[in-house]
C-alpha cells in the first residue's frame, strides 16, 4: 500500500513538474524520463535478475533505428514506435539465446561484442542507416494522437505517460511470482533450479522484457527529440543505464529514475562549474561505490525503509 502511494506520488510530482519547471529543466526532465525507461529495462536485467550486460546500447539503438528508418520511409510515429519496441525485444531475444549460455564476466564481454558488431554494422550500412552522422526526423512527422511532439508540453506529456506505464509495469512485474523467480536467479541460481525453475528461460524472459524497455526508450528518444544516429549505439550508451541503476539503487523500482535524474543534473552542473566534467563524474562514481554501494535507494532500504519497493 505504501509502495502504491509512493509510486503514484512520484508520478504526480513528475506531472506537476511538467507545469512548474523552467524551460531548460523542463526539457532536461523529458530526456531524463525517457532515459529512465531505458534504465528500468536495464534494472530488470541487472538489478533484479543479476545479469550484468554491457551491450544494452544495442537494444536501445535498434529501437531507435527501427523507428527512425520506418518514419523516414513514411510510417506514422505510432506504428514506428511499436516497431522500435519490437526491435528491442527481438534483438534481446536473439542475443540472449546465445549470451545466456555464458555467465559473469563472459556474459559481459559477449554482450559487449554483440553491441560492438551491431554498431559497426550501422556504420557499414551507412547508406541505409545514416551511419555515424545519423539523420533528423522531420518535424511534421513527429505527431502522436494529434499531439505535436516538437512542442515542449506534449513532449513532456508523452515522455511521462511512457515512463508511468513502464514504471508501473516494472512494479507489477517484480511483485509478481515471476518477479520473485527473477530475484531468485540473482540470489541463488542453483537453489531456484532445484525449486523447479528453469534458469535459462527465466533469464531469457527477463532479457527480452529488458530489451523491450530499451527498444521503446530508444524509439521514443528519436521521435521526441528528432534525431536518430549510430552514436547512440556506442559502448557509452551501454554504460550509462548501468550507472543510472547503480546510482539510484539496483533492484529498486524508483532507482532508475533517481539515477538518471541525478546523473543528468550532475553532468550539467559539472560542465557549468569546471572544465573537467569527466573528473567530476569519476569522483562521484568512486564516492558512490565506497560510501553507498547499494545506490541511494538501496542504502535507504537497508537503513530502515524496508518497505521501499
Amino acid at each position: 500500500m505504501k509502495a502504491l502511494v509512493l509510486h503514484l506520488a512520484v508520478l504526480a510530482a513528475l506531472a506537476a513538474m511538467g507545469f512548474l519547471l523552467p524551460p531548460y529543466h523542463h526539457g532536461m526532465m523529458a530526456r531524463v524520463l525517457v532515459m529512465a525507461v531505458f534504465a528500468i529495462g536495464y534494472n530488470i536485467a541487472f538489478g533484479y535478475t543479476g545479469l550484468l550486460s554491457l551491450g544494452h546500447a544495442l537494444h536501445f539503438c535498434a529501437g531507435m533505428m527501427a523507428c527512425g528508418i520506418a518514419m523516414r520511409e513514411g510510417v506514422a510515429a505510432g506504428p514506428a514506435l511499436l516497431l522500435g519496441l519490437a526491435a528491442g525485444g527481438v534483438t534481446a531475444l536473439a542475443t540472449g539465446l546465445l549470451a545466456l549460455r555464458t555467465a559473469g564476466v563472459s556474459f559481459m564481454i559477449v554482450t559487449l561484442m554483440f553491441a560492438q558488431a551491431f554498431h559497426l554494422a550501422l556504420l557499414y550500412y551507412g547508406g541505409f542507416t545514416g551511419g555515424d552522422e545519423g539523420f533528423p526526423l522531420p518535424g511534421a512527422a513527429r505527431r502522436l494522437f494529434g499531439l505535436d511532439l516538437t512542442q515542449a508540453g506534449p513532449r513532456y506529456a508523452v515522455a511521462l505517460v511512457l515512463f508511468g506505464l513502464v514504471l508501473l509495469a516494472q512494479w507489477g512485474l517484480v511483485s509478481s511470482r515471476f518477479g520473485r523467480s527473477l530475484i531468485a536467479m540473482r540470489e541463488n541460481e542453483e537453489r531456484s533450479r532445484m525449486l523447479g525453475y528453469n534458469p535459462f528461460t527465466t533469464k531469457l524472459a527477463a532479457l527480452v522484457i529488458s530489451g523491450l524497455c530499451a527498444g521503446i526508450a530508444g524509439a521514443a528518444y528519436g521521435v521526441l527529440f528528432g534525431y536518430v544516429g549510430a552514436s547512440f549505439g556506442t559502448t557509452q550508451y551501454s554504460i550509462l543505464p548501468m550507472l543510472y541503476v547503480l546510482l539510484g539503487g539496483a533492484g529498486t523500482t524508483l532507482g532508475p529514475l533517481l539515477g538518471a535524474g541525478l546523473m543528468a543534473w550532475l553532468i550539467d552542473a559539472a560542465s557549468g562549474l569546471t572544465d573537467s566534467p569527466l573528473a567530476v563524474i569519476g569522483v562521484t562514481l568512486i564516492g558512490l561505490v565506497v560510501f553507498a554501494p547499494r545506490g541511494i535507494l538501496g542504502t535507504l532500504r537497508q537503513r530502515g525503509l524496508k518497505w521501499l519497493p
Binding site: L52, I239, L246, L278, A279, L285, V289, P293
Partner: peptide, 18 residues
Amino acid sequence: DPESTIVATIGLSYLLQQ
C-alpha cells in the same frame, strides 16, 4: 566485490582520462 570494482574502475578511468 566484482560489481563495485567495475564501477569504481570506470570512475577511475574517467578521472585518468580527464
